[in-house]
């Protein structure tokens, strides 16, 4: 989406909806403890932020997400390189991977709880599993898209297989790998929160469910707001990082969506 042609009618719509929220809750059109006015939600957000409660929870969630992203990402890239360069590996292990891939990730949490308990290890593993598959798929695609000429030239200059992988294949497939990571990043945040919701007593996800049980609607909405901002910021941050890392890719006129 282009940022240059920021329209005004859309912002008026959002402003109108927010106003409607505030007024409907204040004037008693919607008289329900589940429907606090926006100002109360923002006050709860401010309070929880100042008290330090929310920042600590967010820090924990982000930490688990980052650890899962790192483990799953490295495993995904390594497996992808292996699959793409050694066809026999993908022949042998491909079906197993394809059978595990479509299992909805929340369903994997109960068995993992048995093995790894409720805490960080389990959650990081769940996130790593989620991240693994999109990164793997994109890495394989990326390596297959490396120009044969570049590889042939490397061979002509007598560069060994490992150095070819590191200096030619990896940079050339980086745009694909990063695209996989971007998909994985959004999933990782969701899955971290999901894992915290289902098991254990850590992080933003658990807080969200607790506030729902306790009927503290303002805190609950405040948490959703925080997660929305977090999701947006992570995506924006990643896009900026991507543009810096593979600027040559964009310079060649290829675009990210």
């Amino acid at each position: 989406m282009r940022a240059a042609s920021r329209p005004s009618s859309g912002f008026l719509l959002i402003l109108g909806l927010l106003l409607l929220w505030e007024i409907s809750a204040r004037s008693g059109w919607v008289d329900s403890p589940n429907w606090p006015p926006l100002s109360t939600v923002l006050a709860a957000l401010g309070h929880d932020t100042w008290s330090g409660e929310l920042p600590v929870l967010i820090g924990g969630t982000l930490w688990r997400m980052a650890a899962g992203l790192a483990f799953g990402g490295v495993a995904g890239v390594a497996t992808g390189l292996l699959f793409a360069t050694l066809p026999i590996a993908s022949r042998l292990l491909g079906p197993t991977v394809e059978l595990i891939r479509p299992i909805p990730i929340p369903a994997v949490i109960p068995p993992l709880v048995l093995f790894l308990g409720l805490d960080n290890t389990m959650k990081v593993t769940v996130v790593a599993l989620t991240v693994f598959f999109p990164v793997l798929t994109n890495t394989v695609q990326g390596v297959r898209a490396v120009e044969a000429d570049a590889l042939a030239m490397g061979r002509t200059f007598g560069i060994g297989a490992l150095r070819r992988a590191w200096n030619i294949v990896l940079p050339a497939s980086l745009p694909y790998i990063l695209a996989g990571f971007r998909v994985a990043l959004a999933l990782a945040l969701v899955v971290t929160v999901v894992a915290e919701m289902i098991a254990g007593e850590q992080g933003v996800g658990h807080y969200l469910v607790m506030m729902q049980f306790a009927g503290r609607a303002p805190e609950m909405y405040a948490t959703v707001l925080v997660l929305a901002v977090l999701g947006y910021a992570l995506n924006r941050g990643f896009l900026a990082m991507e543009r810096r890392t593979i600027h040559w890719y964009f310079a060649l006129g290829r675009q990210s969506d």
Partner: peptide, 29 residues
């Protein structure tokens, strides 16, 4: 284009919310 100008900011606002986080509020309602 009018629909785009009207709805695009709203979509961009709601889209990054991890949808799993919306389950607890939806359970209240």
């Amino acid at each position: 284009p009018a629909a785009y100008r009207l709805l695009e900011p709203l979509v961009e606002l709601v889209r990054p919310i991890p949808k799993a986080a919306l389950v607890p509020p939806l359970m209240l309602f």
